[in-house]
Design a protein around this nucleic acid. Structure first.
Lengths: 192, 192
DNA sequence: TCCAAAACCCTAACGGTTAGTGTTACGGTC
DNA sequence: GACCGTAACACTAACCGTTAGGGTTTTGGA
């Protein structure tokens, strides 16, 4: 009775994708605030309730791909080659994420996000969740309690690096600059 | 034609205060989500539109006093005694802010905020604004461009210290712990 | 073949927020 | 002391995101 194999899954994924694609297209054409949920649903040919069964909020329509970011961060901590130090592994992962977000083909979506306070706030709240997940992963890796202030601090700093680098003129250099500071902070903590 | 002195100002302030007091009382009595804007307006005996002319959003009704935080941070940078190093000055200010937020009499409001995702998100977006303001103040103090990555990084780290300490079991100790890391990060930056 | 669940649809509403349009009360001016 | 501009407030009516309630179709498996 489990394992909903095949067609059902594919159809559901297709519906979800169609909604996301339609939404992004309309947002880019007419602006985020000038496209209503009812517009998106109509254009994607689904009911409004169906749209909300796939996406928790209007803002989520824009951040379809960012689900992998959190997983990537946690993996960068948990699955790194034995003996590899933590911070450089995270630096590498943040580099990849920043490259992804600042790639030329991502520019229209970027400016869409920047132009809407609602989207900016939503993105920041996503980052907070990422930081919490990362803190838990780091704590698990080091064998300290999840509530360890030092772990949570490092996790936040790493997410800050991501956020700041995405807005910097030279994103790659910014990642390195912030990570020099994070490395020092790490050495000054009791975790190193 | 300027200088609206006297009665008008007082009446406006009184209205604002009455709205905020009423709102907080109702929220604490019945829960944030179970009190509507129309309830608050009716109980405070003002029109809904009047309420929104004083407060930008429902969430802002809960964060009436936090306007001073940003000012305090900027002042901690700009008005510190000559020769006093930057980071300890900020540490002191954050200590004061954390004490303020974790004081026993602030507990009901704290738990109100924690219990509502909307309020938590709003608080975090306020902190982002504080970080931006602080970054600008630091940049001005050091005579570097506002967009300096190092300045923005330190500002974010300081705000992180505040957020983490407010949630920690021992807030005061947490501030000191995070600031040891910030101090190291500061020394590793090109600003020190 | 038939069933249970998943996916979907429709309608109607709720609650925060805003636009449009007055009305009052205050402050400064002649 | 009468007068005018404007800030503060009120009322109505809506917009928009979101959800509840309740039904229909599609799918996978027994």
């Amino acid at each position: 009775m489990i394992e909903p194999s095949g067609r059902r899954e594919r159809k559901k994924a297709a519906t979800r994708q169609k909604i996301a694609d339609t939404a992004l297209r309309l947002f880019l054409e007419r602006g985020y605030d000038d496209v209503g949920i009812r517009d998106v649903a109509a254009e994607a040919d689904v009911a409004v309730t169906t749209l909300f069964s796939h996406f928790a909020a209007k803002e989520a329509l824009v951040f379809e791909r960012d689900q992998g970011f959190e997983r990537g961060l946690v993996r960068a901590v948990a699955d790194r080659v034995p003996g590899e130090p933590l911070i450089p592994a995270l630096r590498q992962e943040i580099h990849a994420m920043v490259r992804h977000c600042t790639a030329p083909e991502a520019a229209p979506v970027r400016s869409l996000i920047v132009s809407s306070p609602a989207l900016r706030d939503y993105e920041e709240s996503m980052r907070l969740r990422h930081a919490d997940a990362l803190a838990i992963a780091i704590a698990a890796e080091l064998g300290v309690p999840e509530t360890s202030t030092a772990c949570r601090t490092i996790a936040r700093f790493v997410i800050d690096a991501f956020a700041l680098a995405c807005e910097a003129a030279e994103p790659g250099d910014a990642v390195d600059e912030v990570f020099r500071m994070i490395e020092a902070a790490w050495d000054a903590s009791r975790l190193a």
